[in-house]
């Protein structure tokens, strides 16, 4: 009996200790360090100095910083709304498709993501730029007299975000819709509800956890994707991600960058907490 217990323990340690060490050293430790330095200051040589301060957090109320925050929240918010408007109907079509077309639709949805996203965003620049393909065609057709300025605007950044993150909205919604009990929809229709009523009162509430998961998977990355703003906005539309990036790569104010990151983590944890409180499963956020 005792030997069996010992063997059990060895098997447990062999399987679980690699992941434990890895996660402790490369997730827990770095995040604790970030939390720690967010309360520190810097000297003239950009070295981190241990002097407890809340200054880094107070800087968020600086109008320039607050402006970037508001811009970033509105870009992420708009991208999330458009992703739902496009992603929900698409997920519904996919969930109702026959098995073969469903597989085909899924593969066709994921396939573009095997190509580097920077190059795909750059291609949008080729299409939408002021001497891009779209303007060339519209000018040739005489529909416009001067090129449309689409690139390097906030709208272009939102477009880039929706383009990059759309599958992360589609997948959780379609998973939920697939599991939906068809009997409930039939019951609703048999009891005289019109399709619109059935959708609003039955389908939508039941698929809410999927939408919520999609919102987390789109909204949170959209706050941080500085490269989308670089490529599509060309510096006109700064995001929280750009601000953090600059603290670490240009102005070397790590403590301030750390404080900004801690706020991002806090926002994420609040959203995830709301998600689990409303009955969402954490595993659904990770499995595609």
């Amino acid at each position: 009996m005792k030997r069996a217990k010992k063997k059990e323990l060895i098997s447990l340690l062999a399987m679980v200790s690699p992941v434990s060490f890895w996660m402790a050293l490369l997730i827990a430790l770095p995040l604790i360090y970030i939390l720690g330095i967010s309360f520190c200051g810097t000297d003239e040589a950009h070295n981190i100095v241990l002097s407890p301060t809340l200054r880094n957090y107070a800087r968020i109320f600086d109008p320039a910083i607050a402006g970037i925050y508001l811009n970033s929240l509105s870009v992420a918010g708009l991208a999330t709304i458009f992703a739902i408007l496009i992603g929900y109907p698409f997920a519904a079509i996919m969930a109702n498709a026959k098995p073969f077309s469903k597989t085909l639709m899924y593969v066709a949805l994921m396939l573009p993501f095997w190509t580097n996203c920077v190059i795909r965003l750059y291609a949008w620049r080729t299409i939408l730029g002021s001497n891009g393909t779209l303007n060339f065609i519209l000018l040739k057709l005489g529909l416009i007299s001067k090129p449309l300025e689409i690139m390097f605007t906030r709208g272009a950044v939102v477009l880039g975000m929706v383009y990059t993150l759309l599958p992360f909205m589609v997948m959780p919604i379609s998973t939920v819709l697939e599991k939906l009990d068809r009997g409930l929809l039939e019951a609703s229709s048999d009891l005289g509800a019109r399709p619109a009523t059935t959708f609003l009162r039955v389908t939508l509430p039941l698929s809410a956890p999927g939408v919520f998961a999609g919102v987390i998977m789109v909204f949170i990355p959209a706050l941080g994707f500085f490269f989308v703003s670089d490529l599509m906005g060309g510096g006109t539309s700064q995001l929280i991600g750009n601000l953090v990036e600059r603290q670490f790569k240009e102005s070397f104010n790590w403590p301030f960058g750390a404080a900004l990151s801690v706020l991002l983590i806090a926002a994420t944890l609040i959203l995830v907490r709301l998600y689990t409180a409303s009955g969402g499963q954490l595993d659904d956020l990770g499995a595609m």
């Binding site: 360090y33 941080g224 670490f248």
Partner: peptide, 15 residues
């Protein structure tokens, strides 16, 4: 899985 990639990026850079 849930935190923004940029946070993980800077945290790893620090370590």
């Amino acid at each position: 899985v849930v935190i923004p990639e940029i946070v993980l990026g800077i945290a790893l850079l620090s370590v």
